[in-house]
């Protein structure tokens, strides 16, 4: 891991306390170098979702700083924040497509930050945006679905549209929130593989929130474990052992989980 390189994303001392008084994140510091695919694991309620939403300020952090490619995000004005958000593509658990718009419209909505209101209202996007949209849709095998309504798609197809929408923003960083939680195991693997491949092709960094430890281990190059709002593990996928899992999730007989992971990986290799 090129830990010494200038980080793309630099989170320092990030704390989030909700108005209800719940402390979601406590003093989280994290550096993500360019092009690194990182998995964020941890039990439900550990603050994974809050952490990535604090990066693009869908959730306002209470204190701490977030710096993206040299720009401090936490102090930006509204307009500047909108411009900064264009560099961060987000992928959601329940896909969060606008269901009554077509696939193509959903994909083009990734360009809204670059397009004026009336142009977007009349769906007049620059030709090269539409071309790029078709190229990416073709890349994920959905070019023939361009004019289908988003709610007519299957879960895996919707998530691929969600990925393309995020890529349309021409981002430097992908924020991925539980991309596979609503998908079956096979589709989950396909989606994870697609995200990782696209990140490699385009040199994108990604923070992927994920429940499934096996998927995280298989696809991410770095794993960060979050527990009760604090980072308790940070290392390569091969260093994630029973002790680490216990520190993240609490006491449990992890030996069988780890054995299962190994066999699953073997199966995956033979299938692939």
């Amino acid at each position: 891991m090129p830990e010494n390189a200038t980080p793309l994303l630099d989170i320092a001392g990030l704390t989030k306390r909700y108005p209800t008084g719940d402390l979601a994140l406590t003093d989280v510091s994290l550096r993500v170098p360019p092009g690194q695919v990182m998995a964020l694991i941890g039990p439900s309620g550990a603050g994974k979702s809050t952490l990535i939403r604090c990066v693009n300020r869908l959730v306002e952090p209470s204190s701490g700083t977030v710096v993206l490619a040299g720009e401090a995000l936490t102090t930006l004005s509204r307009g500047a924040l909108r411009r900064a958000r264009r560099r961060m593509g987000m992928i959601f658990q329940e896909y969060a497509l606008v269901e009554r718009l077509t696939v193509m419209e959903n994909v083009l909505s990734g360009r809204l930050g670059y397009t004026g209101f009336w142009a977007s209202w009349f769906r007049r996007f620059p030709r090269r945006d539409v071309e790029e949209a078709f190229r990416l849709l073709d890349r994920v095998g959905l070019a023939h679905m361009a004019d289908k309504r988003a709610d007519a798609l299957s879960g895996g197809q919707r998530q691929r549209v969600g990925i393309v929408r995020a890529l349309m923003q021409d981002p430097a960083l992908l924020l991925v929130d539980e991309p596979t939680a609503s998908l079956d195991p096979k589709t989950s693997r396909q989606i994870m593989r697609l995200i990782v491949e696209l990140c490699e092709e385009r040199g994108l960094a990604a923070i992927i929130n994920i429940h499934d430890v096996a998927l995280a281990q298989e696809f991410a190059r770095r794993i960060v474990g979050l527990r009760a709002g604090r980072i308790v593990f940070d290392g390569g996928p091969d260093t994630l052992d029973a002790a680490a899992l216990t520190s993240i999730y609490g006491e449990e007989d992890w030996s069988r989980t780890i054995r299962r992971l190994e066999t699953e990986e073997n199966v995956a290799e033979t299938v692939a």
């Binding site: 869908l58 900064a84 497509l97 269901e99 718009l101 977007s120």
Partner: peptide, 26 residues
Amino acid sequence: DPSQVEALRASGASNPQVLAWGMVPQ
């Protein structure tokens, strides 16, 4: 559904665009 609106907001869309693209279709 607030998640569809959140997705547009995350992409850097302006408020009128979020209204027109995320809320009006819904």
